[in-house]
Amino acid sequence: MKKTNILWSIVVIFAIILAFSPITILFLLSLNDSPALPLKNFPTTKWYEALFQFPGAMESIVNSLMVAGVTTLVAVVLGICGGYALVRTRFVGKSFFTGLLLMPMVVPYIIMGISLLSFLLRLGMEPSLITIIIGHILLAIPYATLVLTSRFIGFNISLEEAAMDLGADRLTTFRKITLPLIMPGIITAAILSFIISWEDVAMAVLLAGSQQTAPVFMFSLVTKLPKFVPILTAMSTIMFAFAIVLAILMRKAERFSIS
């Protein structure tokens, strides 16, 4: 019995190290004099100062926020429409639609990315933030729609009927009854869509022009200009902090809307 316990501890500790140590060390190194051990002149904020002066760095974070914001908005609206239609209505080609909806989830990003890229270039579009947004909406639609579909399934339709029996028109019913009831689903779909866009490297790298999102900026700097990597440690720490704040805020909003 003792022996198996020791074995288990080793496996789990190994897993914890594998999952947590890279980010912890990255954080420490962002406060270090050089991106290597041993710690020297620790802690220093010089990489954070350098980051704010580095051309394109802050701009790319703003771009990321914009791309993720637009992606979230469009994906959630399409998700509400799609989820409502899938649960409440019958239409021709429903199973084809469901299959098409799930397909982007099982096709590797590189294939979707280069397909979309060659298609958009052929249409005469230049790679820009807009092409990235188009790609990100494609990535987010299946998740947003599925989340909202499950919300509509768990929805008591008689509440809507009661409102309409009491004289509310369709729009008022939607605004006062339907929307509040599916709010938790909307928030979950929004979080998912935002995170999908915020974290995506692969699709954005393929579709980016001269305007870059933050992960694309990091990718091009890592592979092309390795001597600026320390600046990226500061940048990713800031983005990590932002993501945590966002996660907590949305968690709160989710709780608030349920109660």
């Binding site: 890279p22 060390i25 992960p215 990091m218 440690t233 990713s236 983005m239 990590f240 945590i244």
Partner: peptide, 16 residues
């Protein structure tokens, strides 16, 4: 740890 972006994790491994 995966609230951190994929790129951040890759960057960390690049340094490690």
């Amino acid at each position: 740890p995966y609230i951190a972006s994929y790129m951040m994790v890759l960057l960390a491994w690049r340094l490690l």
